[in-house]
């Protein structure tokens, strides 16, 4: 036995639970633990911890087109300073904020509304659930394709323009530019269509956890069905799920990339609607391949989302999924 192992022994037994005396340190239970957990842990270290560390290192260098910058390219915190003062970076955060202001309440309301309606209907419930969930099978790329080339096509044969024409409205160039910003309608409807079925499933699962007796008791006490029971029984019962769903919608919106890339001109690299990830993608992997600044940006964004998540958790009460 190596010395280090021996010296580790007393420490662990002091801190350890009052368990039966340990068998051999390696072999048996310990060996089993490592061959169960080891492969995953090694992979996690290589593909998550090393990249993040490496990236943090790169963020301190002028690393264009290289992942191994020379020591004279050390620039300290310049990349962070450049990112934070970069007009485009700040605008990308504004774009995200605008996007979130549309997407978060609308997706939340749509998925909750669908869940309540589907849960209430007496026939064809499985059918409705499947239909509203089906868009989840569509990737953002496929949905963008349909939205761009068939529904919100800027020319006459697009579906929306056809419908508008029936009412005598001029054709609208939905995705052409920022004036007026019709593209938001395209992008927001697409995301709601894909996502709300997913969250509806979560809400339905939570609705089914609310005990029936609560409603019965409320009626006995004279509560009116509808608004009163909704606010005093249904919503409190959905609290944990609501918090989780809100967080997921925000985190998803923060990572918006696919539909902006595929719908907007110049692969989404337009000043009026660059999302943080589109910006990051073009900085790190665009023509400049500025991995130093890209890494700095990734770290800043990761920090921001961590803060947003924590604040949201603090503000709404942690989504300790009770009653599951």
């Amino acid at each position: 036995m190596a010395v280090t192992r021996k010296s580790a022994e007393p420490a662990s037994s002091a801190a350890g639970a009052p368990r039966r005396p340990r068998r051999r340190l390696f072999g048996g239970r310990n060996l089993a633990f490592w061959y169960f957990v080891g492969p995953f842990l090694i992979g996690l270290a290589i593909f998550t911890y090393i990249p993040v560390g490496w990236s943090a290192y790169l963020s301190l260098f002028d690393a264009r087109n290289t992942v191994t910058p020379a020591s004279e390219d050390f620039v300290g915190l310049d990349n962070f300073a450049t990112m934070l003062t970069d007009e485009n970076f700040r605008r990308s955060l504004i774009t995200f904020t605008v996007f979130a202001l549309f997407v978060v309440p609308l997706t939340f309301a749509a998925s909750l509304g669908l869940a309540l309606a589907v849960n209430r209907v007496r026939i064809m419930r499985a059918f409705f659930r499947s239909v509203f969930f089906l868009p989840f099978a569509c990737s953002y790329v496929v949905a963008s394709l349909v939205w761009k080339m068939s529904i919100f096509t800027g020319v006459r044969y697009g579906m929306m323009n056809t419908v508008l024409e029936w009412f005598g409205v001029e054709n609208i160039a939905w995705l052409a530019g920022n004036d007026p910003p019709w593209f938001w309608l395209v992008i927001v409807t697409l995301r709601i269509w894909i996502q709300c079925g997913f969250y509806m499933i979560l809400f339905i699962a939570a609705l089914q956890q609310i005990p029936e007796q609560l409603y019965e008791a409320a009626y006995v006490d004279g509560a009116k069905p509808g608004r009163q029971t909704f606010w005093h029984i249904t919503m409190p019962g959905l609290r944990a799920t609501s918090v989780a769903v809100l967080m997921l919608i925000v985190i998803q919106a923060y990572q918006a990339f696919d539909e902006f890339y595929n719908l907007l001109p110049n692969n989404g690299n337009v000043p009026y609607a660059r999302t943080p990830l589109i910006y990051l993608y073009n900085t790190a992997l665009g023509t400049g391949q500025d991995l130093g600044r890209g890494s700095a940006g990734a770290l800043i964004l990761a920090l921001l989302i961590a803060i947003v998540t924590l604040l949201q958790g603090r503000f709404l009460g942690f989504g300790k999924s009770e009653g599951r």
Binding site: I46, F47, T48, I50, P51, V52, W54, S55, L58, V67, Q255, L277, L280, Y281, A284, L285, L291, G294, S295, G297, A298, L301, A302, I305
Partner: peptide
């Protein structure tokens, strides 16, 4: 968000 670090690796 970690796609830049992962790409580096």
């Amino acid at each position: 968000i970690t796609f830049v670090p992962s790409f580096v690796l």
